[in-house]
């Protein structure tokens, strides 16, 4: 009987771990970790630096991914609109730069300068942060709301519903989420999917 119990436990552990390996990363409602990551200006940036923020639009993005490039101007626009209202953009580059030299810190600095980024563009050195969030691709957005208990994940997914053509966008997922948070309403779509460039690790 004990042997049976033992093997059942093993089976249970195997099954459970198989499940957890599928659902890595945050779900809506989870508390997101803070970090200290290097910005393109050489400073270290943490969420806790933003004492007056109401939350954050954390975007895992990169230099060379065509989808990320397609969204550069829209990310700038989001920061222009929502940083003054307490939801600044925090951009994090998650790729292994040895595998993707186009995403090196030097290349990130050039990109930030060329596009005149008004938000931090951080490098996930050692690639410790993106797996905790569960980011799988660039761009991949996590909208966080500051609560007493920490930064709570409120939205995960895409910026909007058309990566190709900004003028053809019908639903602005991130804007809708932040607007809902600002007006104390519940977010209609808390998770969306979009094609993106897999994070290189």
């Amino acid at each position: 009987m004990n042997i049976l119990k033992g093997s059942l436990t093993i089976v249970a552990v195997v099954v459970l771990s198989a499940f957890t390996s599928v659902s890595n990363g945050y779900k809506v409602g989870d508390m997101a970790t803070d970090f200290s990551l290097e910005n393109v200006d050489g400073t270290m940036v943490s969420l806790s630096d933003y004492t007056s923020a109401k939350g954050f639009i954390v975007i895992f993005t990169s230099n060379v991914c065509p989808y990320a490039i397609s969204y550069e101007d829209r990310i700038l626009a989001l920061n222009r609109k929502y940083a003054p209202q307490g939801y600044p953009i925090i951009a994090i580059m998650p790729n292994n730069t040895a595998l993707q030299p186009g995403d090196s810190m030097e290349a990130m600095q050039l990109k930030a300068k060329k596009k005149a980024y008004t938000f931090p563009y951080l490098i996930d050195q050692g690639q410790k942060i993106y797996p905790q969030y569960g980011a799988t691709k660039t761009p991949h957005v996590f909208v966080l709301q500051k609560t007493i208990a920490g930064n709570q994940v409120k939205y995960i997914g895409a910026i909007d519903d058309n990566y190709q053509d900004e003028t053809a966008v019908k639903t602005k997922y991130v804007e809708n989420a932040v607007e809902a948070l600002l007006s104390g309403k519940s977010i209609e779509q808390t998770e969306t999917r979009a094609i993106g460039c897999s994070i290189k690790y």
Partner: peptide, 19 residues
Amino acid sequence: PDSNSWIPEINPDWSGAIP
């Protein structure tokens, strides 16, 4: 381009990363 509408139809677990 409205990939959110069809990604889950291909597979509910697909985050959208390729390959």
